[in-house]
């Protein structure tokens, strides 16, 4: 066991982990931050995306020890203190960008990373960026639409609310 320390959603945390403990396991099992989901074992599905030092990272594909000293952001830290949804979360609700909710944390975290680098992405850019995030419920229609809306684009002409 090795001690690991990091900042998660603005709070300092630490824990004893095995060398093989994944960041996703550390978040879920040690910190009970179960909003980060694990949907595959090959770093394909993206349900586990978190931010590490501002970058979108698949937390199932990073050892907890690799995140020692890092600034980690998870879905639990996205809404305001009073529970108000951030602009991306709100757009997902407004445009029905989620159904079962399992891929949603990863989608929101990926969308946040995309919009930080590219404030008004095109539909094609969003679809390309989301290649690492699988959703089985929505057919992606309302996810893409929600991200366009979150970036301030008019989505009223896109079929079906």
């Amino acid at each position: 066991m090795t001690q690991v320390s990091m900042t998660v959603n603005g709070k300092s945390v630490s824990g004893d982990v095995e060398g093989r403990t994944l960041l996703s396991s550390f978040l879920r099992d040690h910190l009970s931050l179960t909003g980060t989901h694990v949907g595959c074992d090959t770093a394909q599905c993206g349900a586990c995306v978190v931010h590490v030092n501002g970058e979108a990272v698949k937390s199932c594909n990073m050892l907890a020890l690799e995140a020692d000293g890092a600034d980690v952001g998870t879905i639990e830290g996205q809404a305001a203190e009073d529970g108000t949804l951030n602009v991306i979360q709100q757009a997902f609700q407004d445009h029905h960008g989620l159904q079962c909710g399992f891929c949603t944390p990863g989608m929101v975290m990926s969308a946040a990373a995309l919009l930080k680098d590219k404030p008004r992405p095109s539909e094609a850019e969003i679809r390309k960026y989301l290649e690492g995030n699988l959703c089985r419920c929505t057919g992606y229609h309302n996810i893409v639409k929600a991200i366009m809306a979150a970036s301030g684009q008019d989505v009223s002409s896109i079929a079906a609310e």
Binding site: H37, I75, A79, Q89, L98, G101
Partner: peptide, 21 residues
């Protein structure tokens, strides 16, 4: 009515309660 989904709030904030949680 296209009422917005009330379940979304917990799913969007990481507060869902799935079996593995």
């Amino acid at each position: 009515a296209s009422s917005k989904r009330r379940e979304d709030v917990r799913f969007l904030t990481g507060a869902g309660n799935y079996t593995d949680d």
